[in-house]
């Protein structure tokens, strides 16, 4: 299996930052620097991801798990660190790219599905139009081809094709997530970020969405980073898991090992409370 992503010592600080930011924060303390009040959202985060692999990032709110994918997807600039994306024989130094290069990767090689569909979808335009946007950004300008591709994608994500011209506002929460997934998949990205995609959905809807994600992973061999606070999602989807607390990775390993033989006190508590 080929390596697709490698992150080294990624850090993200919100605020002015000071010399003691990293020394005074961490899993045993908090993520707010007592010296300057900056929020150390993530520090010294390193991991790698292989083609077709699903990596889970687990933690509670404030653990920095979403910060990691937001920076990789260029929603937020990284403060420090290095991230390499390997694609078609080229290496991209993600945190060194200019805006146009970022936009190109973001729109064609990465996909993102947000917990909040308002972040991933334009609610003023139709579901099909949302998918069309991604295809248009990627340079396709053939109306019929775009339309039939959008139709295929919606069918694939089990959204009725006859609803493709409706605006996402008319859809249920689960359906909105399906449209988001269809949009993310439009350009066959080798890397997909999923940020709490099932949080807040009904259990049966959650299950169906998780099924869909796994099917896609099997079919397309898409590498994914799944950010969640839900152990069930991790157990079902992730091959490997990182556990984060207050911006640090406190534990990393194969998902079954993290769940069956957790090493860190925090993870042990988390696993014990979920069973």
């Amino acid at each position: 299996m080929k390596k697709i992503l490698e992150v080294n010592s990624f850090s993200k600080v919100y605020g002015s930052g000071c010399d003691c930011c990293f020394a005074e924060t961490g899993p045993e303390r908090t993520n707010i620097c007592p010296g300057c009040g900056s929020v150390v959202a993530a520090h010294d985060v390193s991991f790698s991801l292989h083609q077709g692999e699903i990596l889970g990032i687990m933690g509670e709110s404030g653990s920095g798990k979403s910060t990691v994918v937001k920076s990789l997807f260029f929603d937020e600039p990284a403060s420090w660190g290095q991230a390499s994306f390997y694609d078609n024989g080229s290496r991209y130094d993600l945190f060194e790219l200019n805006r146009a290069q970022q936009r190109q990767l973001r729109s064609q090689r990465f996909g993102m599905v947000y917990q909040n569909p308002h972040l991933g979808l334009n609610f003023a335009i139709s579901a099909g139009g949302n998918i069309a946007e991604r295809l248009l950004v990627a340079g396709d300008s053939h109306y019929q081809r775009i339309r039939s591709r959008a139709q295929d994608l919606l069918q694939r994500t089990e959204v009725l094709p006859e609803r493709m011209d409706e605006i996402p506002r008319n859809f249920s929460g689960g359906m909105q997530q399906r449209v988001q997934i269809a949009k993310a998949l439009a350009t066959d990205p080798p890397l997909l970020f999923l940020d709490e995609v099932t949080t807040g959905l009904d259990l049966s809807v959650q299950a169906a969405i998780l099924d869909l994600i796994l099917e896609i992973q099997h079919e397309l061999q898409t590498a994914m980073i799944v950010v969640t606070h839900d152990l069930g999602v991790i157990r079902l989807l992730a091959d490997r898991t990182l556990v984060m607390k207050y911006g640090r990775i406190i534990e990393a390993g194969l998902t079954d090992q993290i769940l069956e033989d957790p090493q860190h006190a925090y993870t042990q508590r988390l696993v014990a409370s979920a069973l």
Partner: peptide, 9 residues
């Protein structure tokens, strides 16, 4: 067995 399979460290 779990150790061999890496379910346990």
């Amino acid at each position: 067995l779990n150790g061999i399979y890496r379910t346990y460290l």
